[in-house]
Design a protein around this nucleic acid. Structure first.
Lengths: 193, 193
DNA sequence: ATATTAACCAAACAAATGATTGTTTATCGA
DNA sequence: TCGATAAACAATCATTTGTTTGGTTAATAT
């Protein structure tokens, strides 16, 4: 037999480490999170973190990168469930909201980390976020809108509205899916009927 | 004579100190801003700040308070220039945007400081911001909207959209007034004409 | 002229924090 | 069994950060 019931050395605690870092960065920001508190919450010594990542900034980068990949995946999956353009956009908005409002989700750091707060990573973080938002550029391109509609402003308005939800959202507010439906309706239909 | 041409003792560097603090808090957040860097930028020693304010938190509070008062004033003034409900709302949005997008404006910190980042001041800061936003509650109450329209969600969407502008706004983007006009139009009119 | 006070400077402190170094333990392939 | 290596520990360092303390200077009041 290959390896018995003996506990393997395969303690892939890098994953646990990444999870914990994601959670704390999302809630307390970059500077509000300390290497020590991350280590403590996963029963690891502060110095050990530096075996997995060469610096605190590198740790944030790793978390941010995973966060972008995960929410990109989630939103893309959601899009494929719908067929008509407006339905696809609503599905994307709903998935995005679920991601950024779920406390256990990596995606939160995408909107909770202020790039300027990190300095050394400002440019890279901003680029990663912009890359993700390309999904919405395409979705909005596919909408049947009048010639006079500025699609860029349309996107900036919609994304701003949903990203700001983190500020006012409470677990007993409307559900992410409802918020998505309501916001899309505001954009799509005349307001007074 | 009262006091001659002799240089007055009126070295009111408290104002300069407050200005610099406002600027740095707005850009780098509370934790990202250090007492030292504020002092350095106005040629003052770190310790001297504690003559004017008893703590870093007290300094933030002072800045935040001035910020809320200033933007409240600005927006209220703008409202009085218009008469119809939609026009008043657009004026308010425009004034709000000008305030929060102007780098030299105190109002920026209202949206760039995350209350949860400060801990000891979370409640107070949130209350101050909510107090300001009452202006928009009233403006939206006055709109001629259909019975089925959720005015709270309407406000959250609109305020979110304009508050997020800080993330993408560049001096060569649309002007604050144009952004206000476009966003209000999105909310008011059918999208495809 | 003297006393008082506003407004700072100079220096330092204690705590917190990111990071480094040397060592140990456990697993696995040869 | 042995050597290599992954993964962590234990201890410590150097720096940063908010804050304090005591002294200094110049304007104002008495």
């Amino acid at each position: 037999m290959a390896h018995s019931a003996v506990e393997r050395r395969n303690n892939n605690r890098s994953t646990i480490l990444l999870d914990e870092a994601a959670k704390q960065f999302a809630v307390k920001g970059y500077r509000g999170t300390t290497v020590r508190s991350i280590a403590q919450n996963i029963d690891m010594l502060p110095g050990s973190i530096y075996y997995h990542f060469k610096s605190k900034e590198a740790l944030l980068m790793a978390v941010y990168d995973v966060g972008v990949k995960k929410i990109t995946q989630t939103v893309n999956d959601a899009i494929n469930e719908a067929s008509d353009p407006w339905g696809r956009l609503e599905a994307a908005v709903s998935a995005h909201l679920e991601g950024v409002l779920d406390e256990s989700n990596y995606a939160r750091i995408i909107i909770n980390i202020i790039p300027a707060e990190v300095a050394g990573l400002e440019k890279t973080l901003t680029e990663l976020r912009n890359g993700y938002e390309v999904i919405f550029v395409k979705l909005i391109d596919d909408l049947p809108l009048g010639k006079s509609v500025d699609r860029t402003m349309f996107r900036l308005m919609l994304l701003g509205a949903i990203n700001w939800a983190k500020v006012w959202y409470r677990p007993n507010s409307e559900s992410p899916a409802n918020i998505a439906r309501i916001f899309i309706k505001f954009m799509k239909d005349p307001i007074d009927t």
